[in-house]
Structures are given as C-alpha cells and as structure tokens.
Design a binder for these strands. Structure first.
Lengths: 213, 213
DNA sequence: TAACAAATACCTACTTCTGAGTATTGATCG
DNA sequence: CGATCAATACTCAGAAGTAGGTATTTGTTA
C-alpha cells in the first residue's frame, strides 16, 4: 500500500523540496507535479491519485477553484492545502469547501508527513490560527522609518489609519486633538510623497510595513 | 574547490527543498541552515561560508538587517536574496545594500543553481521585475465576487480605488460620470459592510482580493 | 413580454481629508 | 546656551468621500 500524491504549486523550488522530503518517507510515492490547477486536472485524467497537496495562489486556475472542481469530480481524493496565508477566515472557507487539511508553508517536514498520514486515515488537519509573533511584525518597520524619516508617532498613526480609523477617532484613542492627528497625517503624506489615503496604504504595504502572514 | 553555502529561511520546507536540489549539484556543499538572522550570524562565528542564501521575511532578525550586518562584518561572503516579494523598489534597495543577487521563490531549481555559480564567479544577478500575469490576479476574485454579490463593474472600481484614484479620475478613465462611480462605491461599501476607504482596502486585502506577489 | 439586475446619472447634505500657514512646549545634542 | 526636532494645537479653504433618495437605459432571463 502506497499513498500516491500529486503536488500542485507554482513554486518549483517548493515542489522540489517536497519531493525530496516525501520520497524518503514510508509508503509515499510522488506522481509528477503540476504548476497550476489546470495542469493538475489534466493530470488526474491520466493517472489517479490518493492525495493532492494544493497551493492556493496559482496562475491559470487558482487553488480555490481547483478545490471546488476536485471535490465535485473526484470526491475520493484527499486534499491538503498548503499555503502562506495565515488567515482564520480563509481556513474556515477552505474547510467549508471540503478540503481535508490546511497547513502553512513554514511547517516542518515531519509535521507535513504526519498530516499526510492523518488525512489518509480519515482525519482532518486544521491547525489553530497562529498569531504572528512580535518579530514578524517588526519586519521592515525600522527600515521603513529610517528610509522615510518617519517618527514613532507617525508610524503609530499610519497603523491606525490603515485600520480604518478617522483622524477624530485616532485622536480620541491617543488622547490628543484631532488637529494633531491631522498634522501628523499631513507630514506623513509629504514624507512618503503620496496624495491620498489609498496611496498611503498601498505604499506602506508595498514596503512591507503592514504585513499579513 | 567546493562552494560552502548556508541557507537562512524560516520556511523549513523550502530549506529542505533547497538542500535536496543543491546537494546533487557539482561543487556545492550545504552547511547547516538557519531559521532566522540571529541563528545565521551565530553560525558564521563557528564555520565560515562562501555564500549565504537569504530570505527577507524572518522572525528574530529580518533579512534586511541581517544583510547589513553581513556586508559590514563579512564583506567577502556572497549574498543571494531569495524572497517572495516581487517589487522593483525592494530589489533596488537590496542591491544598494550590497547583496549579490535577488531571486524570487518561484524560480526554477536550475536557474537558482546557475545564479549561484554566477554570483560565486563575481557576477551580480538581479533579474527584471516580472509583471504579475493575469492569472495571478484572478486568484480569489471570482470567489470574492460570488461571496459578496459584487458585479464586475464594482470589482473593477475597487481595484482603481485601491490604486489611489479618486472617483472623478476613475470616471474619466472609464468614460462615465463621477456620480456613477460614487454610486458604485456606495453600493460596494454597503455590500462589504465597511464604513470608509481604509476599511474597504483592508477588507479587500484580507480576503485575497488584492494580491501583491 | 414582464421582471429583474446592472450600469448609468443626478441632487442634497454632511463628514472627512488635504494643503497651507502658524505657534507652543519639551527633549536632546553640540 | 542655542539650535533643532518631535509632538502638540489651531484656523481657513477647498477637495473628496459618505449617506440618502430618485430615475433612466440596457440586457438577460423567467
């Protein structure tokens, strides 16, 4: 008895990694991999499989759509979603759509292996949402501050703005006048050279300032 | 002559993959890997290396800070940055900070290998920014539309809003009145149940609607 | 064909943001 | 001590967004 696995992921390096890791494992055989959903489905018409390791963010045919097709056309195939998106809502959605497991890409190889065995034996593997650690959130922030000469207060306000607060609300929360917040905002816009809120948010995000894991 | 490489990445699966791929390559030996910048620096005190493969988004000590330390303390070590961030500004920044190469994680294994050889022989490897393909952007969009009953026009407008356009500008680009755009925006806010622009953007992003690679 | 959804367009009223100018206080640093 | 920066606070004016209502046209579908 050998579990036949197909991997669908647009990151070839990750596929190579998985293949290397899983090939050594007991009772697992890896079928040729796919780089998007379309390739995966084409492949399933040729060879059948027991389990699909599925990335969500793929070109051509993305993971969610692929998942739906798999569930309706190949209900007997187990699906293990492997993604970078650490969002509880998304995990719930994936669970609802009938996947059998949801793992993050920073999972250790042996956790992945045991997840595979669990899923094959009928268990579901949906881990708890992991709060991003302090370290993660620091990421580029210091760099960001240095580069654009932002002060600590300004960084704080960018965060609150991004969370949908108005200047008045921010003022109330920080116990300062809304005019003060407005002044800070103006300075931020000038320093970052953006002309409106959307620009500010996009910019902050593009520079790794607001990171979602 | 063997190139000694240390990999620093918090994604253990990727490390395993790299090790598997590179171990087979000619003239490359992989030293024990690190899961963050701090570990990497600790390791360099013990063993020296010729090249470091560096992820940017790591806990404890992120890639940029690690890069700076490496350049000042170990100027003879080559640095190949391997990341998911497909942003020209970031790549420029990394280049400026003295790295020798910048690759995306969806690179094929042999491209990575040849990049390693190039960097070791003194070349810099900074590829062009790759425009995300249509396929990439589709990602969750259809799902998003279905879930929140958004129309095609509304989705189009969310995108343009996110890019920092005002209603008037959007109207001009779509050859419709700014009032029409305003109406669409109002409907979008109602459907998504958010109260302002920041909320809209945050929401759209949290649901994978606006993906940056 | 009747019903409906989608896209279009306008109005009024109010809130919020943006840009420009000005000023005070406290901390830090040479 | 004097200079500078960060944080605070205010005013005025104009631009943009938000909330409500209403209405026409077009295309699709029951």
């Amino acid at each position: 008895m050998c579990v036949r696995i197909i991997i669908a992921d647009d990151h070839q390096l990750l596929i190579d990694g998985l293949v290397g890791v899983l090939n050594e494992a007991e009772g697992i055989s890896i079928l040729p991999s796919a780089n998007n959903g379309r390739q995966l489905l084409a492949q399933l018409k040729e060879t059948s499989a027991d389990l699909v390791i599925l990335d969500l963010n793929m070109p051509e045919l993305d993971g969610i759509k692929t998942l739906e097709v798999l569930r309706s056309q190949y209900p007997e195939i187990k699906i293990l979603v492997l993604t970078n998106y650490n969002q509880p809502q998304l995990m719930e959605e994936i669970k609802r759509l009938g996947a059998h497991g949801y793992l993050l890409k920073n999972t250790a190889a042996d956790v992945l292996k045991s997840a595979i065995y669990k899923v094959i034996s009928g268990e579901l593997v949906f881990n708890e949402y992991i709060e991003p650690t302090e370290g993660d959130n620091h990421f580029f922030v210091d760099d960001f501050m240095k580069k654009f000469q932002l002060t600590r207060r300004e960084v704080e306000i960018i965060r609150m703005v991004a969370q949908g607060n108005t200047s008045k609300e921010i003022g109330e929360q920080l116990f300062v006048s809304e005019f003060t917040v407005t002044t800070h905002r103006r300075n931020i816009m000038r320093k970052l050279d953006v002309k409106n809120l959307a620009g500010l948010l996009t910019f902050a995000r593009a520079h790794g300032f607001l990171v979602e894991t």
